[in-house]
Design a protein around this nucleic acid. Structure first.
Lengths: 165, 165
DNA sequence: GGGGGAAACTTGATGCTTCAAGCTATCGGA
DNA sequence: TCCGATAGCTTGAAGCATCAAGTTTCCCCC
């Protein structure tokens, strides 16, 4: 077996191709589906999160692993379209709290079923239950290892620096 | 068992979260790594493909599942930087053939080892061999099912229309 | 042999993401 | 009390992806 540090072995290549393929095929397909409703994918995620309860913006950014800048731009759009409400927190003058509007709730609820159907069609219809579970386990392990490497605004310092000597 | 069409079950949710998490954490990290060398991720893919042999542009677009428009924009940049050469095919006046330049080859060869290391660090260091194989199998099945749903320029007609009635 | 149609690629506009600054508000210590 | 440091968020510019034409070349059938 290769001692490490060489090229990817055949199985790893297949897995890597699969991950990239997913990002290049399935995600754009979902993106298009959302855009037909006037949203980008991340906006759907935001509305879905806010349909549960209100959040501070920094909480939202952390939950969806997006930068605060990106969140700010997106929330402005959503507010302009009347889908969310932004109000400064009375307790801390720095934070602003985001809340979904009735229109936003109506929109996300009208989109959700189709979205679930798309996810099924694109991913889970092609997998056996055992494969789905194995996929979940493997990706959970990957995400767990990535955890500290936030590609958010402030990447954690304990994230090993990228492989450029 | 749910008859179908409901929300995702718990395992499916975990798998879906993993896929999205990968796209939101690992891919941006790789993107940043490439940008330190002045490339975007897809440009690395293009140079890597061309380091093997020359290709017609439409071949490249199909291989990397990108639209011809996107490819055109990107190839112009790469040509402007002297990393690839574009020449019209003598056999068919419509096609143009892309070839890597010495500078392009030197660049991709200098980047490749670090890239492999990044992929290992971000993904495969967190997986056992069995998990890697399961991941590869599951994703191969997903991609296979997606096959006809090209998010390329011309989506295949047999791709079931997205779930928006 | 000429004309409709398709293939290969290009172009330009629009919108999203990213990056680097910037701005308040809050907290801690001297 | 005041001042530096930090947290939370915003802003603007630059670059990439996407979409909808547009152009040229080739094919092929009438």
């Amino acid at each position: 077996m290769e001692p490490r540090g060489g090229w990817l072995d055949e199985t790893e290549q297949r897995a890597w191709q699969g991950l990239i393929g997913f990002a290049m095929l399935a995600l754009p397909e979902l993106e298009r589906a959302h855009r037909r409703h006037g949203l980008v994918h991340i906006e759907y995620g935001l509305l879905a999160a806010l349909s549960d309860r209100s959040y501070r913006l920094s909480e939202l950014a952390a939950m969806l692993t997006m930068s605060q800048s990106r969140l700010s731009h997106r929330m402005n759009k959503l507010r302009d379209r009347g889908l969310v409400l932004l109000s400064p927190s009375p307790e801390d003058g720095r934070v602003t709290v985001a809340e979904i509007s009735p229109a936003g709730r109506a929109l996300v609820e009208s989109i959700a079923p189709g979205h679930v159907e798309d996810v099924r069609r694109l991913v889970f219809d092609n997998l056996t239950p055992a494969q789905t579970e194995a996929l979940a386990d493997a990706l959970t392990a990957v995400i767990g290892g990535l955890g500290s490497c936030g590609p958010i605004d402030r990447p954690a310092p304990d994230c090993p620096p990228p492989g450029c000597p």
